[in-house]
């Protein structure tokens, strides 16, 4: 078994809510695979990713990262070092340029590198952006370019898990394919565990495993 993340009987209800958003979910995630979590809007995909990425704490069930209960570890450190998060709305800092966004992420995760600037440029190149683009302010980049910067940022501290919440939701079909190519390459070539929340069949079709969240959760595992 190469499980890097394991969810056991996870249930979640918002403090101000009446119904469970998630009920008794059990998934396992391995390195080297792309996972698609499918579901309609409001099905709880983003909530699940928030819990997996340590942005919220769960009260029922458990999430194990390399066998350790997520609630018991330092979630700030976990987010800054063990997982990379890519959002639909990119969530980059607009007053910084692309390179500075990546370097800041490295600084937060205490990456020890002699030349962080050079490392940032290499990361940008790996997602198809050059140095000139890297020096531009975030708002001067297109949506696709911003998402590539967000992916580069999430890779800056070499995490084992990449979590992407609707990463191509704001992008056209062609850019979506390019972004998916980057993410699948990360799983298959870099041996990362990539978890993508999506309602797009196109994205789901390119992933290795699909989890679909419905009222009764079904597991549609594909053959890798």
């Amino acid at each position: 078994m190469n499980n890097v993340l394991e969810i056991k009987n996870l249930s979640y209800i918002y403090s101000d809510g009446f119904d469970y958003v998630l009920k008794n979910l059990s998934f396992s995630f391995e390195k080297g695979k792309v996972y698609a979590i499918k579901g309609k809007s409001g099905s709880g995909k983003t909530t699940l990713l928030s819990l997996i990425s340590g942005l919220e704490r769960y009260k029922e069930g458990s999430i194990l990262f390399k066998g350790k209960e997520l609630n018991d570890i330092d979630l700030d450190y976990y987010r800054s070092s063990n997982i990379g998060i890519v959002f639909q709305s990119f969530n980059l800092l607009p007053h910084l340029n692309a390179i500075e966004n990546i370097i800041l992420s490295m600084d937060i995760s205490k990456v020890k590198s002699i030349d962080k600037y050079k490392m940032a440029i290499e990361l940008l190149k790996s997602v198809g952006l050059d140095e000139e683009k890297g020096k531009r302010r975030i708002l001067k980049l297109s949506g696709g370019e911003q998402q590539r910067v967000a992916i580069a940022r999430s890779l800056s501290y070499n995490p084992e898990i990449i979590i992407a919440d609707e990463p191509t939701g704001n992008l056209d079909k062609e850019t979506e394919d390019e972004i998916m190519k980057i993410l699948t390459d990360l799983a298959h070539k870099e041996n990362k565990c990539v978890i993508i929340a999506t309602h797009s069949n196109n994205i789901a079709s390119k992933s290795d495993v699909i989890f679909e969240i419905k009222k009764s959760v079904k597991n549609k595992e594909k053959i890798a």
Binding site: S80, N91, I108
Partner: peptide
């Protein structure tokens, strides 16, 4: 928003 992003990418509250 900036605070949210910084916290999301792992910056501690005190930082």
């Amino acid at each position: 928003y900036e605070i949210g992003v910084l916290r999301t990418i792992g910056m501690k509250k005190r930082e």
